[in-house]
Amino acid sequence: MRLTLASPMKPPVPLRNDWVSRVRYHLSRQFAAYLFLLPALLTFALVAWYPITQAIQMSFQDVRLAGESTWVGLKNFELMGKDPALGVIWANALQFAVLSLTMGYGVPIFLAILIREMRNAKGFFRVVYFLPTVVPISIAVIVWRFIFDPDAGFLNSFLKVFGVEAQKWLQDPNLVKPSMVAIMTWAAFGTTTLIYLSSLQEIPTELYEAAELDGAPPLARVRFITLPHLAPIMSLLLILQVMAVVQVFTEPFLLTKGGPGRATLTPVLHIYNRAFLRADIGYASAWSLILVVALMVFSLFYQIINRRLSAD
């Protein structure tokens, strides 16, 4: 070993077996351990642990950025109940979740199975599908906004060939959510496809061989071998997708500012508006708290139901 190192005078391990040097050894080791951990502890304290405790505290306060904040008990939560946007926001979140599951949940599973089947060009598809996931969404929406443009956009010109009338994709309250979910799916499905694909590689080919010998047609092999193998990861990715979509912010923020009307006002966008446009920090914190609790309750319920179902 090429170690040109410090003085060999002090042996790192105690030679004498007396307790003084033992204690000293352990203390110095503990000291070293915490010295190594110190940068992480300080950083996490500043940007994670302290803000998390503050998030809870501020939910019960009227927060003043300059001067003292005052405790207001449950007032922020009471105000939330009277917030005229409350129902709309949760309905939007729910619709976004349902839309993204119907439009995007099956796609990566289907594509991963097809890619796994390819004898060559696997790598090509893997890379191509992955590309949208690496580009910043704030840049991609510049392009998407123009594709969706009612007058000059490509989508309307394309649909005109099939006799479809020009649509206002991002301005029509009925179309804006599916349009946005299409962008979100484009931006995210590459990651999930890769995850499914790597799970598919683990299936021993002997299983397919045996099924083939038993006379099971290809679709039956998908039904009885492929899908059961993917089931656990499918269930995990389902909940991760719902959690991610309920927290969507960048797309509605950049494309519509929550509009038209309140059609794309999502929980996080509302939190942003309240905290940074209206300086209503206590109220925004209360919203964040409720959002996180809602997500956690949802994932807990999901896991319980999931376990029940798989136990049957």
């Binding site: 940007v47 501020m58 927060v63 905290a275 708290l289």
Partner: peptide
């Protein structure tokens, strides 16, 4: 998002 606002304040 749960602590984005307090992070900003911090």
């Amino acid at each position: 998002i749960a602590y984005l606002v307090p992070l900003f304040v911090t």
